[in-house]
């Protein structure tokens, strides 16, 4: 079980990214973390496994305060926290299998990992996970030979190879098309159910968050402004989270921008041809 108490982060640049965030995540709960870009979502989940050092506050995972651990202890604690990234963050030039096995790095010694001689149980487990995410046939391919959706599946398998007690997931679908996004979200939620894993998922997309999470936490300028069931996300709440702007217009705006860019490009080309 995860319990966060008074978590605050002020970056060296003076940005106050988080102020006094507290909540509890019981076993098996999938929490959708929503908020506009810059609200502090990434900072929050990175403070949990300390890829970002929190300024103050406590992060309790099964009676261990992660925020107070020293280097060696922190490494041991990180082994049980799986993380899935927006841009997949696979080691592009290694094979899919090596990427999945890298989830075991915290458990095996340097020399074993360097020579790729992982214990048989780890390898069998890696194959099982690859089978689970539907990539059994791709084990020996290099990670950069896969499509976006496939890469994210490898990312999921890597996180699961750690045998985690908690999953931290940062915008898992931001680089994927809508259909793949749904598939990936469904896979993540299914896996959390199978293993009764608690998970914190940052999502930009309110509709996806609503559909797939058990509970929603809304962040705005580093403060928690909503905590409740997905059904509680009313227009009023969303306006509070995303500010005065209409939140439905936000996503439309993004696609408008892309359209405008494409149009500009076409126009330039046309002009050049007319020269």
């Amino acid at each position: 079980m995860l319990r966060i108490e008074g978590l605050t982060k002020t970056y060296k640049t003076g940005d106050k990214a988080l102020s006094d965030v507290s909540f509890e995540a019981p076993q098996g709960q999938v929490i959708g973390l929503i908020g506009p870009s810059g609200a502090g979502k990434s900072t929050l989940i990175r403070c949990i496994n300390r890829l970002v050092e929190p300024s103050s506050g406590a992060v309790w995972l099964n009676d261990i305060n992660l925020a107070a651990l020293r280097t060696g202890e922190l490494r041991r604690a990180r082994r049980r926290i799986g993380m899935i990234f927006q841009e997949y963050a696979l080691v592009e030039r290694l094979t899919v299998m090596e990427n999945v096995l890298s989830g075991r790095l915290g458990y095996v010694g340097f020399w074993r990992s360097f020579t790729r001689r992982y214990p048989g149980a780890d390898i069998a487990n890696a194959y099982r996970l690859l089978d689970r995410v539907g990539l059994m046939a791709h084990a020996d391919k290099r990670a950069d030979a896969l499509s976006g959706g496939q890469r994210q599946r490898v990312g999921i398998a890597r996180a699961l190879a750690q045998d985690p007690e908690l999953l931290l997931i940062d915008e898992p679908t931001a680089s994927l098309d809508p259909k793949t996004s749904r598939q990936i979200m469904r896979l993540i939620v299914e896996i959390c159910r199978e293993r009764t894993l608690p998970a914190i998922i940052n999502i930009h997309d309110v509709v996806l968050a609503q559909q797939f999470s058990d509970r929603i936490i809304g962040l705005q300028s580093g403060r928690m402004v909503f905590d409740g069931p997905p059904s509680g996300l009313t227009e009023a709440v969303l306006t509070q989270i995303y500010g005065e702007e209409d939140w439905t217009a936000m996503r439309k705006g993004a696609s408008d921008e892309a359209d405008a860019e494409a149009e500009e490009k076409a126009q330039t080309e046309q002009m050049l041809r007319a020269l």
Partner: peptide
Amino acid sequence: SQVEAITATGAS
């Protein structure tokens, strides 16, 4: 980000 991902697994 690739380095961070490896760090997050608890690697030395």
